[in-house]
Design a protein around this nucleic acid. Structure first.
Length: 520
DNA sequence: ATAGGGTTAG
């Protein structure tokens, strides 16, 4: 019996992702009284046990720890023990919701056992606090660690990421600039911070700085800069990054000198970037070149979304079918894309069908976004009454997107009665920006009910509805041009209006399977 | 035996 403990331990260490049932069995073996002496004999064994559980079962590590202390009086947690525990605590923040007290109690325990002075433990605590978003605690420990020169590059990066997640990009950048040492992860963390904050041009600049400083970009940096290129519509930049990654992948397959491979995540980012930059063919090519393993739900969803955005709604719906035939299970985002494609293609029946199948066949409960897509699809097909019925039967409160879709449908059908009701609901929730009222007033105007038009305008003034004018920006030859709704002050306005008319005609001609709402 | 960054959305 005693001999089973090391065997079980070996099993644990080699196969860290055992099933729950297998783990219970191995633990039962390890914790028998005859094995306890073995565990006690080697002070590393309890740590091994914890470590073996970490990748797949972070919370189990936290539960097992007090039990080990109870049944093994000789067990002295050391710096490794704490680094495992803190890693568990940090990982549990994403999967199980934030539990601040968990980190605080580990901190307290580390102090009691005098392990908090150990560099690894101190850095682990900073990371655990930071990943729970507990910035003041993380910062206090971090400042102490910087003073005592204990703070390592991981702590700097963890804190940088925590500031970025809290929306403080400038603070993140200040940390980045202050780092005594940076590696690829520090660069990619800063790059992702910019992307998350919408600073796409800053992200692209940072990527170029990264290359100039001789740091080899990793997957995260490549994915981040591709996301930025997609958002900017920077097709040339995106192509350049693609070529760089492809060249590096070819080189490293020969002599393994370490450029990143185009794995599934990078491939998905490329599909998305090309599609967002208007190059559907390139997106298709990348997708077609992917291996079956790389074509996961993310890849399929990106491709479906790209097809739908380019007006290839029927192809998008076909790809959804092919995805299921390949055994890839759609998730909630996939359904948003597919429902959107159905709506744009005018396939209301298919939209209803897909919506019904979500919970029934795929175990995905429709969220408010899915109701929004369904209402939009019904509304584009002119089925205002059915759309209204869906809104009334929703198990959750309709948001501005749902009500906006319904209002669009009312406007398109000239249904002033329902439209008035929808504007009332929007007003109740404080979601009635000026455009909503303008839409209602336009509906009355279409029926020549000028008294009602005036009443809506008065109501807007009385209620002091905030005017948030629509606005867009484009960069031409390095000069930024801003356009605000109703503003005709640009010196080349006649040319611009003529280009807009051409574009509109082109859209109608090319995407005639799209139902355009609100464009006349 | 040790910690940090990443993909799809109306």
């Amino acid at each position: 019996m005693a001999a089973t403990a090391p065997a079980a331990l070996q099993l644990l260490c080699r196969r860290p992702s055992l099933s729950a049932a297998q783990l219970r069995q191995v633990h039962a073996q390890l914790l028998t009284s005859s094995s306890l002496s073995l565990l006690l004999a080697d002070r590393f064994l309890p740590n091994q046990l914890l470590r073996s559980l970490l990748p797949a079962h972070p919370l189990r590590v936290l539960r097992l720890f007090p039990r080990l202390r109870r049944i093994l009086p000789g067990f002295r947690p050391n710096n490794y023990t704490f680094s495992f525990l803190l890693k568990s605590a940090a990982d549990s923040s994403s999967s199980q919701g934030s539990d601040a007290r968990l980190v605080a109690s580990l901190h307290a325990l580390a102090v009691v056992l005098a392990w908090d002075a150990h560099d690894y433990v101190a850095n682990g605590l900073i990371h655990a606090y930071a990943s729970h978003g507990l910035l003041p605690s993380a910062r206090r420990l971090f400042d102490g660690a910087v003073t005592s020169r204990a703070a390592d590059v991981c702590s700097w990066t963890s804190l940088l990421t925590a500031y970025a997640r809290a929306g403080q990009v400038d603070e993140a950048r200040a940390l980045f600039d202050g780092m005594p040492r940076r590696n690829d992860v520090s660069w990619s963390a800063m790059l992702s911070a910019y992307v998350a904050a919408g600073g796409f041009a800053d992200a692209v600049r940072l990527f170029e700085d990264m290359l100039r400083s001789g740091v080899r970009p990793n997957r995260a940096a490549v994915v981040g800069v591709l996301t930025a290129c997609g958002a900017l519509g920077a097709l040339e930049q995106g192509r350049w990054v693609h070529a760089m990654v492809a060249a590096g992948a070819r080189r490293s397959s020969r002599n393994d000198d370490g450029m990143i491979a185009i794995d599934g995540v990078v491939m998905t980012a490329l599909v998305d970037t090309y599609a967002k930059c208007g190059s559907l063919d390139a997106a298709r090519q990348v997708f077609a070149g992917a291996t079956p393993e790389q074509r996961d739900v993310f890849a399929y969803t990106a491709m479906i979304s790209g097809l739908s955005d380019h007006g290839r709604c029927l192809e998008a719906i076909d790809l959804f079918a092919r995805m299921q035939a390949e055994g890839v299970r759609p998730n909630e985002v996939t359904f948003i894309c597919v429902l959107t494609a159905c709506g744009r293609a005018g396939l209301v029946g298919r939209a209803r069908e897909v919506f019904r199948s979500m919970a029934a066949a795929h175990g995905v409960r429709p969220g408010v976004e899915h109701y929004g897509c369904l209402v939009d699809a019904l509304g584009r097909a002119g089925l205002v009454a059915e759309a209204l019925g869906v809104v009334r039967s929703m198990p959750m409160r309709p948001d501005s997107y749902v009500l906006g879709a319904l209002l669009n449908a009312c406007a398109a059908r000239g249904d002033v009665e329902v439209g008035k009701q929808v504007v009332g609901w929007l007003a109740e929730q404080g979601l009635d920006h000026s455009g909503v009222h303008v839409q209602l007033s336009n509906m009355y105007a279409a029926w020549s009910e000028w008294g009602e038009v005036a009443r809506v305008r008065r109501n807007m003034e009385e209620r002091n509805v905030a005017k948030v004018p629509g606005c867009s920006m484009v960069e031409v030859d390095g000069v930024a041009c801003e356009f605000v709704a109703g503003d005709r002050s640009h010196p080349r306005m006649p040319e611009i209006m003529s280009a807009v008319r051409d574009l509109h005609a082109h859209l109608r001609h090319r995407f005639d399977d799209i139902i355009l709402v609100g464009v006349s």
